[in-house]
Nucleic acid binder design. Sequence first.
DNA 1: AGTAATACCGGAACTTATTCCGTTTAAAGT
DNA 2: ACTTTAAACGGAATAAGTTCCGGTATTACT
Lengths: 191, 191
Amino acid sequence: MPATPRRTRSDALQNRERLLEVAAQAFAEQGLDTAPAAIAKQAGVGVGTLYRHFPTREVLIDAAYRRQLTQVCEKVNDLLAQHPAAEATRMWMEHFIHYATAKSGMSEALNAVIASGIDPYSDSRVLLTDAVATLLAAGARDGSLRTDVTPDNVLLLMGGIAYSVQHGTEEQARPLVDLFMDALTKDSSAS
Amino acid sequence: MPATPRRTRSDALQNRERLLEVAAQAFAEQGLDTAPAAIAKQAGVGVGTLYRHFPTREVLIDAAYRRQLTQVCEKVNDLLAQHPAAEATRMWMEHFIHYATAKSGMSEALNAVIASGIDPYSDSRVLLTDAVATLLAAGARDGSLRTDVTPDNVLLLMGGIAYSVQHGTEEQARPLVDLFMDALTKDSSAS
DNA sequence: AGTAATACCGGAACTTATTCCGTTTAAAGT
DNA sequence: ACTTTAAACGGAATAAGTTCCGGTATTACT
């Protein structure tokens, strides 16, 4: 048994970084169904290398969009600092939707991440879940949001909205966000 | 130019029917990712025949689940005949969810159909849209449902719920249905 | 019934995604 | 500096999905 926790090779790190860069650009320009082989080639590595770093399409997408997603999720803290929970939530959802419409491929990516309950522990999913959890917790504290909803519930429905937006415009998503917010802000003593 | 609108060959019809039967069973037993080749083989035809009748996976799924979906959608009329619109809607949603949890593969199929805004004119999608539209219209008539929501909006969110149910239990879906119904029954004069 | 036209059939060929494995090369120890 | 070790590499091999085309069987017509 090799008890040598040898550290990661430097070329491996570089290749990984390169792949991520290329993938992010390729996804944005040509959509999520860009051929893995093409990405590998442009990054100057073999497909084997790509698959070793990112075993499935999902993992690659997840990693490629992580940075952007991080930005979206960080917005939560800013918003909560300046607005009551319910309002912050609405604003965040709109921010989220805006992002989904603005960045080509983003909503596809979001859905790939959100809808894949298969792997609830992907980094991006954790990121999103935490963001929503923070909002819900704040809502519970100031009493502006109902307490019988889980972050997963919210994410799932937001994924649905993002998906619909993908084929429509930001304006078309508005009614859905309104609808959803109405539901979230309703007194939680129902039923 | 052959102006002979020759009628469809009888063996073609039989094959199509056979494929549908086999596909429905295979999907139910082994999930939606059953290999096309396997379905074709069990139906005793070549893959070419399968693809001619059902050009994409979606079309096949759509066709295979049509009958079951029809049943679910027909329930709308029964429910509306005996209950006010809002209550009928809630009951129908629960029926829908129940179906999604009971029939293995059903929620996958539902999502394949609903989430594929790509082809808004698939037969099953029309079926579902009509069902929801009927409910919403009834709600508008008796004033129990808000009027600023489209059937597509509703379907999309129901798809999300169905998807979450796929990985959970019927009970876990309840809060989401409640949430959604709260939103739908809320006064539509908002904002 | 016999024949011509053509819709349909089956599976081979092609394409694209994923896995596997012999070779290379950076890292750690001498 | 040199050797050892195994992590990482590239691309060939495999698997799965989809298209294409030569052959066959059904229909419509005589």
